[in-house]
């Protein structure tokens, strides 16, 4: 267990260096000078030089990268935005809860949809419910999330006026116009739904298949032969096993979904990490983009570790070595 954790941490460090370095290199391949942007349109060459020196972009890229690493590792400081001089720590700190709300809320949303539909259609294959849910799966898988997002925004937000189309409300700190759990959820319903449709469809299909497979396992028959009532057979023997692969997939898909959040945040103008990164890219704001990358990488690494530990905990056959 200790060795397992040690190996994971070393891996995480390697991964972390690789990801941030690649991101840095990519920036230097883009022929654009952030100093020009900072210095403004009317700046002279001397102004731009001064700005470049001030930002540190006149140094070779490995020096910049080393300085970045030093700041990050020693001072836990992501630096300051080239665009507006704000601390990147606080930019990321403000954006992360938005993305987390979107992704984890979306995951809960899709699981709440997929679990009952998947289980019920496995219990009654070829029933009306099963056929209806398979149709939903087909639509969910074939339609692009952006298209679904726009359709949802148009009908539920614009035509019916049921939900807000844009904006974000904080869960804990109410600002002047909105705040608190209800407003938070209210503003996120459409993004969640958009985000969740594709995954819900995939998960309905996966849960249904797993439950159908597990129902035919010998140990399920053993449970019945002991005289276990059906609800116990379902809960303790079928679902407990059928959900193992679902948990693994969920871990991977939530990481994936972090990437997908970029689209959803753009469609609904949510001030999350995706939107922040895009804004940073458009403005050549290296520190902000790097900050988002660092944070997202760390988040995914930690999240995967948690999922692995969780998985080993629920499946006794898995040994962490």
């Amino acid at each position: 267990m200790v060795r397992y954790l040690a190996r994971r941490v070393i891996w995480a460090a390697v991964l972390f260096i690789a990801v941030t370095l690649v991101a840095y290199v990519l920036f230097f391949l883009i022929p654009n000078d952030p100093a020009k942007l900072v210095a403004g349109k009317a700046a002279t060459d001397a102004d731009v030089k001064r700005a470049a020196h001030f930002l540190g972009t006149d140094r070779p890229f490995y020096v910049q990268y080393a300085k970045f690493l030093d700041r990050l590792v020693i001072h836990q400081n992501l630096g300051f935005s080239f665009a507006n001089r704000q601390s990147v720590n606080s930019i990321v700190g403000n954006a992360a809860p938005v993305t987390a709300s979107l992704v984890f809320g979306g995951a809960i949303f899709w699981m709440l949809l997929a679990l009952p539909i998947g289980i019920l259609s496995a219990l009654r294959p070829r029933s009306l419910l099963d056929r209806a849910s398979m149709t939903f799966v087909l639509i969910g898988i074939s339609a692009h999330p952006i298209w679904i997002g726009l359709i949802f925004a148009y009908f539920f937000g614009f035509k019916l006026g049921w939900t807000p189309i844009t904006g974000y409300c904080d869960f804990i700190n109410p600002s002047t116009d909105c705040g608190g759990p209800v407003q938070w959820a209210y503003h996120l319903v459409l993004p969640w739904a958009t985000f969740a449709i594709l995954f819900a469809a995939l998960y309905v299909r996966m849960i249904r298949a797993n439950v159908l497979d597990t129902m035919n396992e010998d140990y399920v028959r053993t449970a019945r032969s002991k005289g276990a009532p059906e609800h116990l057979v379902l809960r303790s023997h079928i679902l407990r096993n059928a959900m193992l692969p679902v948990v693994t997939m969920l871990g991977m898909d939530i990481s994936l979904a972090l990437g997908g959040a970029v689209f959803t945040e753009t469609v609904y103008s949510l001030p999350g990490l995706g939107k922040t990164a895009i804004f940073g890219l458009n403005n050549n704001d290296i520190p902000t983009v790097e900050g988002v990358i660092v944070f997202a990488t760390l988040a995914i690494i930690v999240f995967n570790l948690v999922v692995d530990l969780l998985y080993a905990w629920i499946d006794p056959r898995i040994r962490l070595t």
Partner: peptide
């Protein structure tokens, strides 16, 4: 269900798959 496992019990062909792994 009252009878199964209480009055009549069964042992199955394949011991490798007849116990719940979790």
């Amino acid at each position: 269900r009252d009878i199964r496992g209480n009055d009549i019990a069964m042992i199955f062909q394949d011991p490798m798959t007849s116990l719940n792994p979790v």
